[in-house]
Design a protein around this nucleic acid. Structure first.
Length: 278
DNA sequence: ACGGCCTCCTGACGGC
DNA sequence: TGCCGTCAGGAGGCCG
């Protein structure tokens, strides 16, 4: 589930419970995630106060007294807040980590595919190897058409590959890359360097637009954030092309096409998103 | 430096 | 019903 809007929704949902809470206990049931959870994590984290919950790209950063807990949800990760008293009853398959707090709640990390990560660092967070080379946040003023244009000029890759590259801009996953290219009326395969400046203006606006809308839609699920596990699909009815191969384009009713672009499912409208020739 | 392919893992779904 | 192949929202690592 987690693309940037999901991670941001998660941050908004868990922050009120985590902020200024003290960790009283850490239970790790499964150490084997993308990278192994440090054996000493429970000892390190217990007793720490969580001061601030930040998001950078798709990483959640829990700033504590003596360092930062880095959480990534991978493809299938979720966080939820559970009442301590309900804790054992609520336990489900793939609930790998519990972080118990002094306010009667615990933060529970679930991840069936285990592509996610939970890492601790006591170094300055911006220098962490996973974060140091990341591009700008798409929803900040740093991410402009001028910037993306400049980053396109030396590239041979497709525009879709470019906007999904975290060193260029973070947080644009496969769904929103597809959707943003539809809104900007650009073929995913277009060579980045062949697009005009005007194309970049449209694309940057489309990326910001689709991410903001998805975050707003996530906000509506926020209400039942503590209930079950907020089913996905709340933004699904707003998707124009993703997952809609063979269906009519919502704009012109041409049939949505489908292919693989660097191993990722890619969808486009052949009429609205014309091919750019080299 | 860059682009493309592979990989980690479980679960859902479609075809036979 | 069950078995098997295919696919899935991420992204680091490796190779050319």
């Amino acid at each position: 589930m987690p693309e940037l809007p999901e991670v941001e929704t998660t941050r908004l949902g868990v922050s009120p419970y985590l902020k200024d809470a003290i960790v009283t206990q850490v239970i790790i049931r499964q150490f084997s995630l993308r990278w192994p959870i440090a054996a000493e994590l429970a000892d390190i984290l217990t007793g720490q106060t969580i001061f601030q919950i930040q998001r950078r790209a798709k990483y959640l950063l829990l700033h504590c007294n003596s360092g930062t807990l880095i959480i990534h949800l991978g493809m299938s990760g979720r966080l939820r807040i559970v009442d301590i008293e309900a804790g054992d009853n609520d336990l489900q398959k793939h609930d790998h980590v519990d972080i118990t707090l002094d306010n009667g709640h615990l933060l529970r990390y679930t991840d069936p595919r285990r592509f996610g990560a939970i890492l601790w660092t006591s170094d300055p967070i911006e220098q962490h190897p996973l974060l140091v080379d990341l591009g700008p946040e798409p929803l900040t003023e740093e991410f402009t058409a001028d910037y993306l244009w400049q980053r396109s000029q030396s590239r041979c890759c497709s525009i879709k590959t470019l906007i999904m590259n975290g060193k260029v801009v973070v947080g644009v996953g496969n769904i929103y890359a597809n959707e943003a290219l539809f809104l900007a009326e650009l073929h995913p395969k277009s060579a980045a360097k062949n697009l005009t400046f005007k194309d970049h203006v449209a694309l940057v606006a489309a990326i910001k637009n689709v991410l903001n809308k998805a975050i707003s839609a996530g906000g509506t699920t926020l209400k039942d954030f503590r209930k079950s596990d907020g089913k996905p699909g709340y933004f699904a009815q707003e998707l124009n092309v993703y997952g809609r191969a063979g269906s009519p384009c919502p704009r012109c009713e041409s049939i949505i096409q489908h292919y693989k672009e660097t191993q990722r499912a890619t969808f486009y409208c052949p009429l609205c998103q014309p091919t750019i020739s080299d």
